[in-house]
Design a protein around this nucleic acid. Structure first.
Lengths: 126, 126
DNA sequence: CCGCATCCCTTTGGATACTG
DNA sequence: CAGTATCCAAAGGGATGCGG
């Protein structure tokens, strides 16, 4: 879709660009917030509870975690399940299909990053 | 890489997550700034000059455009060529291989967004 | 034509503290 | 255990104006 336009005719490219820009903008906006994709990824590999996520990212504060989880749920990338039957009511998160599809793209990004990006010293982003 | 871990052994998943989190974090940070991927994409389809990019994104201000272009160049995603021979010295941008590889991932993201994301009314992000 | 310097405002992330 | 409310500091993006 991107390779054929060379001599750009007035607004033809403009429309193409803007059309592409639109949805990708939303997606980028959804992806960008700090910790968000890491949280989604963590959920996907089995870290499904609030407290576990907290332990996983020690520098991540409660209410940001809560906020991100809320976003993920309202965006349909993750789902929330309450297991209220037993002792202290337990809450589990899991990824939806939509979320899994997104993670596939993110993993592509990860592949790209490790291959083409500066493989700098690995530090947690504080 | 993500599908096999179900029962997570103590810190095994933790290491995995953090290792993944690191490079992807940098990549996400690079990708997130507003207009950046749109600019890179625009360059890739032939909009190679500052003024043309300005015309393409009327609501985008000069110094943000300049900043983004600078970032793209220093990150090795785009390259800058000066054609100083003729009349007013002309500057052309183009995507590097690294940038093209990234765009491929972004297009995947775009595919995902148009398919799985809410296909809402398309408006320019003001 | 191609930007940078400065200022300002909005948004975002985090610290602290409190509830079901 | 699983969050929410409030406040605050930092960063990002935009407007204006100037220089090469």
């Amino acid at each position: 879709m991107a390779t054929k336009i060379k001599e750009c005719s007035a607004n033809a490219y403009n429309l193409t660009v803007l059309a592409a820009a639109c949805e990708v903008n939303d997606a980028l906006k959804s992806i960008s917030p700090r910790w968000k994709m890491q949280i989604l990824y963590s959920i996907s590999i089995g870290i499904k509870q609030f407290s576990q996520l907290k332990k996983t990212f020690p520098t991540l504060s409660d209410q940001v975690l809560g906020k991100r989880l809320g976003e993920l749920v309202t965006e349909g990338l993750a789902s929330k399940t309450v297991v209220a039957d037993k002792t202290p009511s337990q809450i589990m998160y899991s990824t939806t299909e939509k979320g899994a599809a997104l993670l596939a793209v993110i993993l592509d990004l990860y592949q790209w990053a490790t291959k083409e990006w500066k493989p700098s010293a690995c530090q947690i982003t504080h």
